[in-house]
């Protein structure tokens, strides 16, 4: 079920902050691939943990590659950038050039995927931190390849009680290559409340 506390206004505000972050990330990414990166309009949903698991299992029934970064500041949580196998390979080929990449990600390809994700997630954190005027520290990126259950492993993640999942869907593509990525944040309910406080403080400046 969708969240009652994370209302449409908060979704709109956070979505726009992600949109700006993705725009910044696209500049770096376009320099890496030496081509224009096309961005789609993002949408953001706030759902409970079980609903998120069901949603992801429908969207990505097979293997996914997820880069995870823990972020911490006035609010904290786990951020993920997901790519399915095909998008991961397309992305790696765009950065490293065409080659004998096979159908699985080797060490170099994994490093490339982590680096792009690091740029994208940090651009998003950076934008949220700048606009909300708070500091967010992030951990080094970790790549998890497997099924959704492996990615959302509650024992590995440092999530607290009643976690909420904020799921941002946004795709970026290069000419003739469609690469779809999805950003998700998992945050405990007390952290969500602190994020809401920050968003409210910011939004009241413009009401």
């Amino acid at each position: 079920m969708t969240s009652d506390i994370f209302t449409e206004d908060y979704c709109d505000t956070l979505c726009e902050l992600f949109n700006i972050g993705m725009g910044r990330a696209a500049v770096s990414f376009s320099e890496m691939v030496n081509d224009e990166v096309l961005l789609t309009v993002p949408s953001l949903k706030a759902v409970d943990f079980n609903t998120a698991m069901e949603l992801f299992q429908c969207i990505s029934p097979g293997n996914v590659n997820a880069v995870e970064q823990y972020f911490e500041g006035r609010f904290s949580g786990n951020a993920f950038l997901f790519f399915n196998d095909e998008s991961s390979l397309q992305l790696v080929r765009s950065i490293l050039g065409e080659g004998n990449w096979g159908s699985e990600l080797g060490e170099l390809e994994q490093e490339a995927l982590k680096e792009v994700s690091n740029i994208i997630l940090n651009a998003c954190f950076g934008c949220i931190a700048d606009v909300l005027d708070c500091e967010l520290e992030s951990s080094v990126p970790d790549l998890i390849c497997g099924e959704i259950n492996d990615v959302f492993d509650v024992e590995r993640m440092r999530i607290g009680e009643n976690p909420l999942v904020l799921t941002l869907s946004m795709s970026f593509s290069l000419p003739n290559k469609k690469i779809t990525g999805q950003v998700s944040l998992i945050m405990a309910s007390d952290s969500i409340k602190r994020l809401i406080t920050e968003l409210e403080r910011f939004m009241t400046l413009y009401v």
């Binding site: 700006i20 972050g21 725009g23 910044r24 696209a26 500049v27 376009s30 224009e36 990166v37 961005l39």
Partner: peptide, 8 residues
Amino acid sequence: TANIQAVV
């Protein structure tokens, strides 16, 4: 716009 690439 958030899409701040030079080409845009």
